[in-house]
Computed example of a mutant assay.
Amino acid sequence: MNITIVQAILIGCVAALSNLDGNFFGEMKFREPIITGFLVGLILGDVQKGLIIGAALQVIWMGATAIGPTAQLDIGAGGTIGTAVAILTGKGPEVAITFGLPVAVIMQFLNTFLITSYSVLMHRVDGLIDKLEEKKIIFIHIACGLLTGFMYGALTFAALYFGNNTINAIVKGLPSWANNGLNAVAAILPALGFALLLNILLEKNLIPFFIAGFAIAAFTSLNTVAVTCIAVAAAWVIYLLTTNSIAGAQNFAKAGASDEEDEEL
């Protein structure tokens, strides 16, 4: 599938938008792969495939969290380019991962380099603060953010428009053993994403609920929506019990405590 110059420009705008998210727009989550996948699929005329690939990348990267000085993967650019390459080549999430992960690493290093280079302007800003020249300070802030977004968009455009033939040649030239390996990686990485997420969020008192949810999903015919509804209901009941919001729950707790005191006496 060939890409037009208009499509390449629009996908470049999606990559730029993913960078501006968190800087200018607050946490709008435009950089999440499920969002960029939908937008890229819409631009390339295959929304369903864009959503499927974006969801697969979302599961992989949902546990990737920047902790302390460690740099987080640039999931916005990685998801955008990875999804675009997968749709253009007619492949699935395995190709999106192959191209998306290296791009996410490279773009994060580029972003770090740009932010570091902007530190030169901080001396200028310090002087403007002393002079109370607020408009110039705001201009520098906006200009740096827009320059970074433009760099993201321009690099994405160039990679997809001028490198489309090269990307297609690379994908088509992969041997069968490499394709089988990529398929295996695509199947394993979602589990790794969940493992990373659980490593951050899971607490000992939540393990029984995790086991219950896994058992319901694995050994019943209920779909994901039904399991999610059960989880929401369980969480709601637990919240009501812990906050004594259920009628009679507080009296029941007091009665239980009184019985224990009577037994001790």
Rank of each mutant, 00 (worst) to 15 (best):
C13D: 02
G50I: 04
Q72G: 14
A15I: 11
K135Q: 09
F139Q: 09
F252V: 08
G78Y: 03
V95A: 06
I81T: 01
G181Y: 06
A247K: 13
M122C: 09
V225F: 13
L147A: 13
G41E: 08
I170H: 03
G163W: 13
G12H: 03
G68F: 01
I11V: 15
L192R: 02
K135W: 02
G54S: 09
T83H: 06
K29E: 04
F38K: 02
G63E: 08
G193F: 00
T70I: 11
V237N: 02
G63M: 12
N19Q: 08
P102S: 11
V103W: 12
A257P: 00
L192V: 15
G26N: 08
I140R: 10
G92D: 15
N251I: 00
I138P: 00
L192I: 15
V6F: 12
D130G: 10
T156M: 06
W61E: 01
T4Y: 11
G79D: 06
A215H: 03
G193I: 00
L73I: 08
L10H: 07
E263F: 13
F157K: 05
A218Y: 06
N199W: 07
L39Q: 04
G63W: 09
L88W: 04
N165W: 04
P208Q: 11
N111S: 14
T224K: 09
S221C: 03
G90K: 11
A71K: 06
T156F: 06
T36E: 05
K131F: 02
F157E: 03
M107Y: 10
A184T: 13
E263N: 09
I137V: 12
L192A: 14
P190R: 01
G22P: 03
L146A: 14
V105I: 15
I52H: 04
V103C: 14
A77L: 11
T112W: 07
V6P: 03
I87M: 03
N244I: 05
V14L: 06
A218W: 08
T166K: 07
H123A: 07
I129R: 12
K49E: 10
K131L: 13
Y161I: 07
T116N: 15
R31C: 05
Y239D: 10
N179P: 01
G82N: 04
G78N: 06
L174H: 05
S18L: 03
V40I: 10
K91E: 14
F38I: 08
T220P: 03
D46G: 10
K204Y: 02
P69H: 10
R124E: 08
I211R: 07
S221P: 02
N23C: 01
Y152S: 01
A16W: 00
A186Y: 07
T70V: 13
L196Q: 09
P69F: 01
E260M: 13
N180R: 08
A158F: 14
F24H: 03
M28P: 01
L128S: 10
T224A: 11
F109N: 07
I238T: 11
K131H: 09
Y118H: 14
A253N: 10
K136Q: 12
I35H: 00
F210K: 02
L17M: 14
P175W: 12
A226I: 14
K131S: 12
G22I: 00
I170Y: 04
A215T: 15
L192F: 14
L20E: 05
